[in-house]
Simulated scan of single mutants.
Amino acid sequence: MHGVKRIRYSREALEAKQQRDKAKLQEYLALTEEIISRKKNGDYSHEAFDLTTRMLRVNPEFYTVWNYRKTILVKEFFLKSTPHQINDVLSGDLDMTTAFLKQHPKIYAIWNHRRWCLEQVPEGPTEADPNGWKMANWKKELYVVEKMLDVDARNFHAWNYRRYVLASMPVHRSEQSELDYTTRKIEANFSNFSAWHQRSKVLTTLWETGKANPAQNREEELELVRNAMYTDPFDQSVWIYHRWLIGEGSDATILQAEISSIQELLDEQPDSKWCMESLVHYKQLLLRNHSAIIGAEDRQVVKTSCLDLLLQLQHVDSERKNRYGDLAVRIRDMDI
């Protein structure tokens, strides 16, 4: 591979390496065999638990071992421990998986074990503060996932997990705080599709609960997304969010304003397939939903414009030539 420095071994060094690799494989197979045997025999001892730790450090994708570890915790540790001890054990597993995620940030099994641990946190530490341990763990979890997103702002595993954490916290974080967080992530990188997606989820919640005005928000969001479009008109994330924001039922005034804005951008960036695709999409919506308010002559102009854009797209994005051709046939057959 380009950019990867090749290591040349002498014959003796290569043989030594092969011996080490063979020994590691034998050790791994022996450890696997012992764990499976203990699991089959219903061994839920501390020794068995320590063996799962050893294995998961080597192979954190081993689902059977994760499940065995959970069983040991439930059938041994939890039954014989105080709530304080249970919280300590679970905190230990959370710390362990934090270390794993630094090396393996996209392994489902690690994220799933964290979820399980958080859901087992007992109430306490006192009757007066039953959410004390829970809240402390969930706050720490939000901190951990934010650190993960600082390292890789587009890690969709971390974004999915963040949504889970926010939904599960005993005291919910405000939607406005989360909206501000996505703003920071988007302004740092307009190509962050996961941040745009999270933003759409937050706004939907705000609108459905009546905490925000959709019309006002959309105007503010359109300003944000236009800035992103002009910054990088070739980035797919921005255009997908824009299409979600406009929706299928926008009124003619909004559609015409966006068509005008995108046309201005296309004039500056004549090879932007996303400008062309979006213009075709929004002009179709205009024809389909608002044909009554535009004259017959204007409807034909819009239709012809769509067909011209699709012809250009067949050259600019030739891999999807047939798709654009099929769409042109449907538009040509539209009854306007």
Rank of each mutant, 00 (worst) to 15 (best):
V4C: 02
V4A: 08
V4Y: 13
K5T: 15
I7Q: 13
R11C: 01
E12S: 12
D21I: 08
D21C: 05
Q26A: 14
L31G: 04
S37W: 04
S37N: 13
R38P: 00
R38T: 02
K39E: 12
K40W: 04
K40G: 04
N41M: 08
Y44H: 12
H46N: 12
E47I: 10
F49P: 01
F49S: 08
V58M: 09
V58S: 11
N59C: 09
E61P: 00
T64V: 07
V65C: 13
T71A: 15
I72H: 04
I72F: 07
K75E: 15
S81V: 11
P83M: 13
H84I: 01
I86P: 00
N87I: 00
N87P: 00
S91F: 09
S91T: 15
D93Y: 11
L94Y: 10
D95C: 13
T97F: 08
A99M: 08
L101Y: 05
I107G: 06
N112Q: 14
H113W: 11
R114G: 09
E119I: 05
V121G: 03
E123V: 07
T126G: 06
T126S: 15
D129G: 05
N131M: 10
M135G: 03
W138P: 00
W138D: 01
K139D: 14
K140S: 10
K140N: 11
Y143V: 14
A153F: 03
N155E: 06
H157Q: 06
A158L: 06
N160D: 14
R162V: 08
Y164V: 03
Y164G: 02
Y164T: 07
A167K: 14
S168W: 03
H172V: 05
E175F: 11
S177L: 10
T182G: 07
T182P: 04
R184G: 01
A188M: 14
N189A: 14
H197L: 03
R199E: 08
R199K: 12
R199V: 04
V202E: 05
L203D: 02
T204W: 08
T204A: 07
W207P: 01
G210F: 01
A212R: 13
A212W: 02
P214E: 13
E221Q: 15
N227S: 14
A228L: 07
T231S: 12
D232L: 03
P233F: 01
D235S: 13
V238S: 10
G247N: 02
G249H: 13
A252M: 11
T253I: 09
I254S: 02
I254P: 00
S260P: 00
E264G: 04
L265A: 10
L266V: 03
D267H: 08
E268T: 05
E268H: 05
D271N: 12
C275L: 11
L279W: 05
L287Q: 08
R288W: 01
I293Q: 06
E297M: 07
E297H: 05
V302L: 13
K303I: 07
S305A: 14
L307T: 06
D308K: 14
L309W: 12
V316D: 02
D317G: 01
D317L: 04
K321R: 14
N322K: 15
D326I: 06
L327A: 10
V329S: 12
R330A: 13
D333E: 15
I336M: 13
